[in-house]
């Protein structure tokens, strides 16, 4: 059955509090999920008080500040700090988003930060995305064509054809959408999730691709595709303003279309 309560070894305890430095002008409280598999202890929620006046404007700046000057063991992924690598996706105040593009100004005095929901946790804010990436790989996210490429040019597309794949191709695989989806929470072992399905859609509608039928065949499955119940959390949280829910609906429409 679906589990509605965390297993005993995942229940969160109260952790330590690091108070704001003396003379802090604008104190913000960060309640951050901490988990260290090596310690053998349950996860805990640490509180870090930070002077926002002495810190960059984004949540990621605050995390880096904490790691630099309060607790160097705080673990999280980050790279580009401009919303294009997708590394710093985490659950901030109950919403999956990128720490680097989430402004502290848009959040309250107290900010709760957890790893992406319902994923195995490697350490602190780092979720294990192995399965998520494997699901992405399973939709064969590359061009498949039988016609050889023209010897003297690229495989051409019209401007309209390019525009159709332009948005879906902008996915950064941050996993905000899939880990916000209740269907993915309950059935991620068999449901591909919005990110992988958006990638599949991107190749299905690519005018240069010739494996459209095989791609649709591979998705026509009660679990791989049809676990999507149009909850639309995916579209709601996407930090790149993409629309995986619509992509999935389009795939479902194409599957009907090729039957009738």
């Amino acid at each position: 059955m679906a589990e509605f309560r965390l297993p005993a070894n995942s229940r969160i305890r109260t952790g330590v509090t690091h108070e704001a430095p003396p003379g802090a002008r604008e104190v913000r409280k960060f309640r951050i999920y901490r988990f260290d598999p090596a310690s053998g202890e349950n996860p805990r929620l640490d509180t870090f008080e930070l002077d926002a006046a002495d810190c960059g404007p984004m949540v990621l700046d605050a995390l880096i500040r904490i790691k630099d000057s309060v607790d160097s063991s705080l673990t999280f992924r980050r790279s580009c700090r401009e919303g294009i690598c997708g590394s710093c996706a985490m659950n901030i105040d109950g919403v999956n988003r990128l720490a680097c593009t989430t402004s502290l100004h848009d959040l309250g005095r107290e900010i709760r930060i957890y790893p992406l929901p319902h994923m195995p946790v490697v350490k602190d804010l780092v979720a294990d995305l192995t399965q998520f990436y494997a699901q992405y790989a399973s939709v064969k996210p590359w061009l498949q064509a039988q016609s050889p490429a023209p010897p003297d040019s690229e495989r051409l597309q019209s401007k309209e054809e390019q525009e159709r794949i332009d948005r879906p191709a902008a996915c950064i695989l941050c996993a905000c959408c899939s880990t916000a989806c209740p269907s993915y929470w309950w059935n991620s072992d068999r449901y591909l999730g919005p990110a992988a399905l958006l990638a599949a859609y991107r190749w299905i509608i690519d005018s240069r691709d010739e494996a459209t039928g095989e791609r649709l065949d591979a998705l026509e499955d009660p679990f791989k595709l049809y676990r999507c119940h149009t909850i639309m959390n995916c579209t709601d949280v996407c930090p790149k303003d993409l629309n995986p829910a619509k992509a999935i609906a389009e795939i479902k429409k194409m599957l009907v279309q090729r039957q009738n």
Partner: peptide, 21 residues
């Protein structure tokens, strides 16, 4: 089993569109 092997699982049931429609 490899993560990809697990993700592919038993493959597609080639079914579901009838139910949905």
């Amino acid at each position: 089993r490899s993560p990809l092997g697990r993700a592919i699982g038993l493959g597609s049931a080639k079914e579901g569109v009838g139910h949905w429609w």
